[in-house]
């Protein structure tokens, strides 16, 4: 970081000016981020319907640990997390390494095509996927015609396949997004490292695991943390593809909070308690990922 050699008089004059530049943002972020967080913490110790809340101590937290639907939502969310995030990151890494090849033709086309899903709104693509994966949808028709399956798969109606559909949908939407991060990081790697490795007779796989992965570690960490945070907040897709069904088999934590607050009889206090479980999970998982990746590089 270059030192701004501004002299002391300018410094002193600019103390107030400086704060006036940042003041509005600071106020808005405190009102619309930190204040609600504190409110949610207070509400998590209250119960009641709608706005008639009163303090009931740890009741909500006790309820949380015996709430089967909460555990279903947590389990589903973690299935998405553990299955989808690794698949997507490996796929995005693999694609970006292929695309980083200097001799590759049609590079621009491939990159644009794979990135294209990112321009769709979550709602729009979720509904397109719901139709493609419907009982009489195109995916089943295609698989039946190829004689890969004998009877249509219940992509939306079967508890197991509905989860698979959600995983496929999210992977489709976000792989290109992660790929862009890896591509821009790969472009910063000095090619002479690879040249040297080649002279030493290192295979492509050896180069990938020995050079590419270690150098991309900070950005892989960044994308896995953002993907984890994103998955813990999964809502739009599930809401529009399966509505959480069949029988809560695709319900996510965010959707459960939404249901508690705005669908069932407004149980704001308990909803706030459930929402704090996401906060705690995000903190724990981000911390864990930092530890696993070794925080020196991050």
């Amino acid at each position: 970081m270059k030192n701004t050699n501004s002299n002391m008089s300018i410094r002193r004059r600019s103390v107030l000016t400086g704060w006036s530049f940042v003041l509005l943002s600071v106020v808005l972020i405190f009102i619309f981020y930190f204040y609600p967080m504190i409110q949610a913490l207070i509400m998590s110790f209250q119960t009641g319907t709608g706005s008639n809340l009163e303090f009931t101590g740890l009741d909500n937290y006790k309820r949380l640990f015996s709430d089967a639907m909460f555990f279903t939502a947590v389990k589903n969310t973690f299935i998405y997390l553990l299955v989808q995030v690794p698949i997507m990151i490996v796929l995005a890494l693999f694609i970006s390494v292929l695309l980083n090849d200097k001799k590759l033709k049609f590079k621009g086309f491939f990159r644009t095509a794979i990135f294209l899903p990112c321009v769709t709104s979550l709602v729009a693509y979720a509904i397109v996927f719901k139709y493609l994966f419907a009982g009489n949808g195109l995916v089943n028709t295609f698989l039946l015609n190829l004689h890969l399956i004998d009877t249509p798969i219940g992509w939306i109606t079967d508890p197991f396949w509905a989860k698979i559909t959600i995983v496929i949908a999210i992977t489709w939407r976000w792989t290109g997004y992660n790929m862009i991060f890896y591509l821009s990081a790969l472009q910063n790697i000095d090619n002479s490292i690879y040249e040297a490795a080649k002279i030493d007779g290192a295979s492509a796989a050896r180069q990938f695991f020995g050079i590419t992965i270690p150098l991309l570690k900070p950005i892989i960490l960044f994308t896995s943390i953002t993907s984890t945070i994103g998955t813990l907040q999964l809502f739009d897709e599930v809401m529009n593809i399966t509505k959480g069904g069949p029988g809560n088999s695709t319900l996510t934590i965010s959707q459960y909070i939404y249901n508690l607050s705005f669908k069932y009889s407004a149980d704001f206090g308990y909803a706030a308690t459930v929402s704090y479980s996401i906060v705690i999970m995000i903190i724990l998982l981000s911390f864990l990922q930092f530890k696993v990746a070794g925080d020196k590089n991050a």
Partner: peptide
């Protein structure tokens, strides 16, 4: 202050939506 602001990126929207809704209501 800047680092404190950055912490807000970790806050899941699901945790803010109920208090936000009540604020506006």
């Amino acid at each position: 202050v800047f680092n404190i602001l950055l912490l807000s990126m970790m806050i899941p929207f699901a945790a803010m939506m109920v208090p936000l809704y009540r604020m506006f209501a």
